[in-house]
């Protein structure tokens, strides 16, 4: 399931500037240790794919990056802002980091256009006209402009997820987080969403993507991170990662997901 043919541009290389630094981050749910001493640095423009068996903490990790989840020890800095309990900091980070969810989470009581203009108008204080222009621009980019006045419930899953991506883009974020964006889709709709993500990657967006789409990882990722039981087990460039996995856990995982 790849999206190789969607764009021929060569992705720009990441810069040297770090935009996310995670050091010794730990998180517990009660007694359950979900994240164990996570260390990860992401450079500006870098595309990272995070994979691993379910329950490995990969979703929790990226949900910590926009503080949908709190962490209990260690330090996470996003775009130069330390993410802790400070509400001001959390809001500042969320203005620059957007997330695309497995279940889209579009607002069902608003039209597609209203979904897109909501945050620019209320968070960025963009004038309404500009916000609409911006929304239409991104709807064109995800090839769904003709659906602008429909409600999310009237769209297919793939269309909804593209709207969700456009909604995030309307905030013109510096970093985009994808939490299993294609897992809830019918198989025939996965490609249309991946195509949009590949285009984004090739434009140099900083992306962290939790996904099992290994084709996507091979095509656009600068690094693949493998997590298991709350730890980062292995991390490397896609060709190293897929061709010469070092740990047994990685080998087992790859054999399981690549076998079918």
């Amino acid at each position: 399931m790849t999206a190789i043919n969607s764009a021929n541009k060569v992705a720009p290389s990441p810069s040297d500037e770090d935009v996310i630094t995670i050091s010794k981050a730990n998180k517990w749910y009660g007694n359950f240790h979900v994240l164990k001493d996570i260390d990860l640095t992401v450079r500006k423009g870098e595309r990272i794919v995070i994979c691993g068996p379910s329950g490995s903490g990969k979703s929790t990790l990226i949900r910590c990056l926009n503080r949908l989840e709190a962490y209990q020890s260690g330090e996470i800095t996003v775009d130069g802002i330390l993410l802790g309990d400070d509400v001001k900091n959390i809001e500042a980070v969320r203005r620059e980091v957007c997330m695309v969810f497995q279940h889209f989470n579009l607002f069902p009581h608003m039209t597609v256009l209203e979904n897109l203009t909501l945050a620019p108008i209320w968070v960025r204080k963009t004038p309404k006209k500009e916000a609409i222009a911006l929304a239409m621009h991104y709807l064109e980019r995800v090839r769904i402009a003709e659906q602008a006045h429909k409600y999310p419930g009237q769209l297919s899953g793939g269309q909804q997820q593209r709207v969700a991506i456009a909604r995030s883009l309307c905030m013109q974020p510096k970093i985009m987080l994808f939490d299993e964006p294609t897992s809830a889709l019918d198989p025939e709709m996965v490609k249309e969403v991946l195509d949009v993500m590949v285009e984004l990657a090739k434009e140099g967006m900083t992306m962290l993507c939790v996904t099992h789409e290994m084709g996507f990882a091979k095509e656009v990722a600068d690094r693949v991170v493998f997590m298991d039981a709350g730890e980062i087990v292995e991390m490397g460039e896609p060709h190293d990662f897929f061709d010469n996995p070092k740990s047994d856990r990685t080998k087992l995982f790859l054999s399981q997901i690549l076998s079918h």
């Binding site: 926009n66 503080r67 949908l68 809001e91 969320r94 203005r95 980091v97 957007c98 997330m99 969810f101 279940h103 989470n105 579009l106 607002f107 069902p108 009581h109 909501l118 945050a119 209320w122 968070v123 909604r167 995030s168 905030m171």
Partner: peptide, 24 residues
């Protein structure tokens, strides 16, 4: 997910409530 979507877009608690959660 509706609360999370509001949060992740940077809406404040009251904005989220007024625009997203309460209407539903």
């Amino acid at each position: 997910g509706q609360f999370e979507a509001g949060d992740s877009l940077g809406l404040s608690y009251w904005q989220s409530m007024r625009l997203i959660i309460l209407p539903q």
